[in-house]
Simulated assay, not measured.
Amino acid sequence: MVRFKNRWLLVEFIPVDSNAKFKPLNKPAVALDGKIIWNALRQSVLSNFGDVGWGAVAPSLTIKYFSPQTSVGIIRVSREHHKVAWAALTMLTSIDGVRYLPNLVHLSGTIKHAQLSAIEHNRVVIARYRALAKTPAGYQDSYEAFLEKTTLEIEALQD
């Protein structure tokens, strides 16, 4: 029996204002989901690496998780072709007409390490939101429920 070896990319999609250089937007006009991201990655691979690149990456490329609140997703791709997917992700400039800056947060060989990194990254993002809102450290808000919900969703992912 042969085991398929994968790489797991934890990616954050940062919306960027098209008029200013790298000025983050508060709320993008287009709501992202896994299907939209998969199609954008497909177009990026096709335009940068052609049909041969897409033929190599396509069988293993899947979006396993995406959170529209934090714009963080987990992408699975085969170990042999993860550099093509990573390069296509790096060269991705816009998704459905909205400019995004894809930030690779973590590259992992197992889903477990990708899950742990995603949970930690969500905590960091929520801490940034709380710092912007200037809430005290012990304050209970809706972010606690969000963290619990996303932690359960991420831990439930299967290979």
Rank of each mutant, 00 (worst) to 15 (best):
L9K: 09
G50N: 01
P15T: 05
L41G: 06
I36V: 15
W38D: 11
Q158G: 08
A87K: 11
N19Y: 08
I36K: 15
E148N: 13
R128A: 13
K27D: 12
S71V: 01
A40M: 07
P28C: 06
A137F: 11
A87W: 01
T62G: 02
S108A: 15
A20R: 15
S67M: 02
P28G: 07
T93A: 13
S117M: 12
K64I: 08
R128I: 03
T150I: 10
V45I: 15
V77M: 05
E153W: 04
S67E: 04
K27S: 13
S108Y: 06
I119C: 02
K23R: 15
I36L: 14
G73K: 07
N103C: 08
I74K: 01
V77P: 03
Y139V: 03
K5S: 08
E120S: 14
A131T: 09
A127M: 08
D141I: 07
A29W: 04
K149P: 00
S67D: 15
P28K: 05
D51T: 07
R123E: 15
V72N: 01
G109W: 03
E144L: 11
D141G: 14
S18W: 01
S117R: 11
S67G: 08
S108L: 06
F22L: 09
A114D: 06
V11F: 09
G138K: 09
S67H: 06
K134I: 05
Q69N: 09
T70G: 07
V77T: 15
W38L: 15
I154V: 14
A56K: 14
S142M: 05
M1D: 09
R123N: 14
G55Q: 08
K83L: 13
W54R: 03
L25E: 10
R42W: 10
Q69D: 10
K27P: 01
A58W: 04
A131E: 14
L41S: 04
P68R: 10
Q69S: 12
E155N: 13
T135G: 02
P136A: 09
L152N: 11
E80P: 00
L61T: 07
K134C: 11
A85L: 04
S47M: 06
R79W: 11
Q140N: 09
K134A: 14
A156R: 06
E144C: 03
Q115L: 02
V125G: 00
H106I: 00
E155R: 14
A114V: 06
V52F: 06
L25F: 02
G55N: 12
M91A: 13
D159F: 05
H81I: 08
S67N: 15
T151P: 04
R99V: 07
A145P: 01
L89H: 01
A156T: 00
L116N: 06
F13Y: 09
V45G: 05
R42I: 03
G55T: 03
G97F: 05
H113E: 10
P59F: 11
E120M: 09
L89V: 01
Y143L: 00
Y139I: 00
A131Y: 06
M91Q: 12
L157C: 03
L89M: 12
D17T: 04
L147W: 02
A85M: 04
W38A: 14
L41F: 09
L147D: 01
R42P: 02
G55E: 07
M1F: 11
H121Y: 15
Q158M: 10
P24F: 06
K134D: 13
I36F: 03
R123T: 05
R99E: 13
A131F: 05
L152C: 03
A85R: 01
S47P: 00
T151R: 12
G109D: 11
